[in-house]
Amino acid sequence: MRRRRMLLFPAGAAVVMSIVAATAFTGGYRLNLTPSEPLGLWRIEELERPVAIGDLVFLCPPTTAVFAEAWRRGYLRRGLCAGGFAPLIKTVAALAGQRVDITDHVLVDGRLVPASSVWRTDGEGRAINPDPGGVVPPHHLFLHSRFASSYDSRYFGPVPDSGLLGLARPVFTFNP
């Protein structure tokens, strides 16, 4: 009898934790474990207006060879977006119709994007091919993160706005 109670406690705790996790997930809560934005608990907030420059957003990356390679290299986490990727948390730096120039930094319509140095190799010494830039196509967003080695549109280019999940709002976060 005592052994049975000892087994029921961890099983019950696992069930309760699963219910809490499922409820949080359906409520739009996500755990960020990448350094691009502060670590911790975030919430996806419905966007009730057109997306704007400066918005911090959650976005599911498209299922393309570029993102498959990024996952293989460890730049992306596994998650519940199409293709098995986790959503990205990034700032919108340019909208459709804006010109993006990428050299050693990023310029949007001729204005320097702060903290936008472009790397040519990753931390493992592997070559990174920056996106060539150009005009952001219709229904696409150019995303940026101020974190120096963040994987963002500097490297993968504009992404379809159809992957936009909503605004990213910190709930309980910290910078390591």
Rank of each mutant, 00 (worst) to 15 (best):
R3Y: 13
L7I: 12
L8C: 11
P10H: 10
P10I: 03
G12R: 04
A13K: 06
S18T: 15
I19S: 11
V20Y: 05
A22Y: 08
T23D: 04
T23Y: 10
T23K: 09
A24G: 13
F25Q: 13
T26K: 13
G27T: 02
G27I: 00
G28W: 03
Y29V: 04
L31F: 12
N32F: 03
S36Y: 00
P38T: 02
L39R: 07
L41V: 08
W42H: 12
W42K: 03
I44N: 06
I44Q: 11
I44V: 15
E45G: 02
L47I: 15
E48V: 14
E48W: 03
P50C: 07
P50W: 13
V51P: 10
V51H: 08
A52G: 09
I53Q: 13
D55H: 13
D55I: 12
L56M: 14
C60W: 09
P61F: 10
P61W: 13
P62H: 11
P62V: 09
T64S: 15
T64Q: 08
A65L: 15
V66R: 14
V66P: 02
F67W: 11
F67N: 02
F67C: 07
A68K: 07
E69V: 02
R72W: 05
G74K: 09
Y75H: 07
Y75R: 10
L76H: 07
G79I: 08
A82W: 08
G84A: 08
F85D: 11
A86K: 04
A86E: 14
P87S: 05
P87I: 07
L88P: 06
I89L: 11
I89A: 06
V92F: 05
A96D: 08
A96Y: 00
G97P: 04
Q98L: 02
I102C: 02
I102L: 03
T103N: 07
T103A: 12
H105P: 00
H105D: 09
V106G: 02
V106K: 02
V106P: 07
L107I: 00
L107Q: 01
V108R: 03
D109A: 01
R111F: 02
V113R: 02
A115L: 09
W119R: 14
W119Y: 11
R120H: 13
R120F: 05
R120P: 00
R120Q: 14
T121P: 00
T121H: 05
G123M: 05
R126H: 12
R126D: 01
A127L: 13
A127P: 10
I128V: 15
N129R: 10
P130E: 08
P132G: 06
P132F: 10
G133I: 00
V135M: 12
V135P: 04
V136W: 11
V136D: 04
P137E: 06
P137H: 09
P138E: 15
H139E: 15
H140D: 10
F142Y: 15
S145E: 07
R146L: 09
F147D: 08
F147R: 04
Y151C: 00
S153G: 02
Y155L: 03
F156I: 01
G157Q: 02
G157F: 05
P158R: 01
V159A: 06
V159Q: 04
P160T: 08
S162Y: 06
G163C: 01
L164G: 01
L165P: 05
L165C: 07
L165E: 12
P170Y: 10
V171N: 06
T173I: 15
N175S: 15
N175D: 12
